[in-house]
Each structure stands twice: as C-alpha cells, then as structure tokens.
Amino acid sequence: MTLRAILDRLLLMVAVIIIVSPALLFFIWMLSLSLKYEVDNAAYPPILIPENFAWQNYVSVLESNRFPLFFGNSLIVTGTATLLGLIVGVPAGYGIARMKATRSAIVILIARMTPGLSYLIPLFLLFQWLGLMGTLWPQIIIHLVITVPIIIWIMIGYFETTPMELEEAATIDGANRWQVFRHVALPIAKPGVTVAFILAVIFSWNNFVFGIVLAGRETRTLPVAVYNMISFEQLSWGPLAAAALIVTLPVLLLTIIAQRQIIAGLTAGAVKGG
C-alpha cells in the first residue's frame, strides 16, 4: 500500500466516525441519562458513566401499575391496525399491480402528503358521533391511515416485479383468481409482505399526534403516556429517560434486526406515515 492509499483509508474512517457519531452518541447519552440518579444527572461537568447505576429508574417505570395498560394499548392499536392493513392492503397491491392501475395509487401519494391533523378533525367528530370515544377503536381505525397506504404502496412495487408466467400456468391448470393469489403470487411476494409489515408496525407504534387527541386516561398508547409523564407526573430525568428508552426500544431493536428489509422498503417507497 502506498502512503496515499493509507492516508485515504484513514481519512475515510475519520469521516465515517464523524457522520455516525451524532446518532451513536445520542443513544449512548440517552442510556446514560436513564441509568443515573438525580445527583449524577444534575452534575456539572456531566457524567457519562456513573459510579452507581440507577436500575431503579427502570424498575419504577416497569412496576408502575399503569405501564402494562399503556403497553397493552400500544400493542392492540399497532397490532390490529397492522393486521387489518395487511388483510386489506396486500390483496389491493396485487389487484392494482395486475390491473396495471398504478395511476390509482396517486390517492396513496396524496394521502402521504396530507398532514395527519387534517384526518383528525373529521374523524374525531365521526368517532364522537358514533360513541366510540373511550374505547381503543378510534385509534385503531385512524392508524389505518398510516398502515394501509404504506402496505399498498410497497405491495404494488413487489407484485409488479413478480413474474406472470407461473400465474398464467396455474390459471390454465384450472386455479381460480383467489387460488392463484393465495398459492402462487403471495408466496413469491413474502419478502415484500415482511417489509410492509415492519414499516407499518414502526410508523404505527411511533405515532403520537393521533393519540394526543383520541386517547383518554385509559386508552393512552406508550408515546402519549410518555408525553404525559413530562407534563404532569415526572420531573426527574432518570425515570423519564428510562421510560423514553423503553418506549422506543422495540422499534430500535427491529431497526437493527431487520435493517436490510427496512432500508429496501424505505428506498423503494420512501413512505412515512402520519
């Protein structure tokens, strides 16, 4: 290796460290905040690694009697909205791709551009009128605004690239449309379903704006619960940071585990919910 090549290598590594450090240091600092007692969090200069770890920050969040409720709410809202989104969106992506009706997807694009609040006003009135407030249904239904477009958009892309020959052969063998979809098209598009599922889960889990309006005391999802901690219940940083980390941990783990699928989905669709 010439001196020039070694220098290039070194420069590249420095550049990589510089661009990755804001993300890395932020999450390390988040972890540090969540593991420190009040004294250490108020220290100047700031302490990165404390002498005593405040594990009780996590214990107090996890043991609070409301936490299982909010966690369950998040799980039900995201789970149901994603499941319904898949049931509705995967066949739709298939139908649109096969009908070559990709122009109709412009609705999805406009939906992507619409500010989340514009859905919230009319649907809020509708839910009140239907007497659904106080249940989880308003949030489940409005989360469809996030999950359905992402899933349809990604599935159109996948079904457009899957080969038609197998489907034609199955049709000639006497399979009907549904059987062709279920036994030929769907298995091939499985990676696409995975991508759509992961992105729908993440953006639904992260959603905050729908929850602050539609959630009552008993129907808060985790992001709303954490926000309410800041404003009402909790002022010390340790437990707050611990709660924040717990809320976002499932998503961060999913990002690391399914990194390749997420990146594939985001670059293909560049969709984001809400």
Binding site: P22, A23, F26, F27, W29, M30, L33, I202, W205, N206, F208, L222, P223, V224, V226, Y227, I230, L240, A241, A244, L245, V247, T248, V251, L252, L254, T255, I256, Q259, I262, I263
Partner: peptide, 14 residues
Amino acid sequence: VMPMMATPVAIALV
C-alpha cells in the same frame, strides 16, 4: 438510520 426509526416523542424528550 436509527434516529429516523426511533419514536419521535422519546427522542424529543431526550
């Protein structure tokens, strides 16, 4: 990529 996937409210808090 983690910052864009993390829960915005949690990030905002920190």
